[in-house]
Amino acid sequence: MTTQTLKASASRAGLIPAVFAVVLGLGIVTLAGHVQASALHDAAHDVRHATGFPCH
């Protein structure tokens, strides 16, 4: 195996956990910042305004 293919396979292997982490991060941001369920909205209200999310 050449160094190049080694690097390529290593970066492919690194892509799967990165994608998982992005999906998890997006889920958290959506839940905390965007879901309109009223309990969540009320609890996160001030943060949503201060962080520049569309709130109401």
């Binding site: 982490a21 998890l24 991060g25 941001v29 910042g33």
Partner: peptide
């Protein structure tokens, strides 16, 4: 929570 989500990305 919000910034932890961003930091994961």
């Amino acid at each position: 929570l919000t910034y932890t989500g961003y930091t994961l990305i």
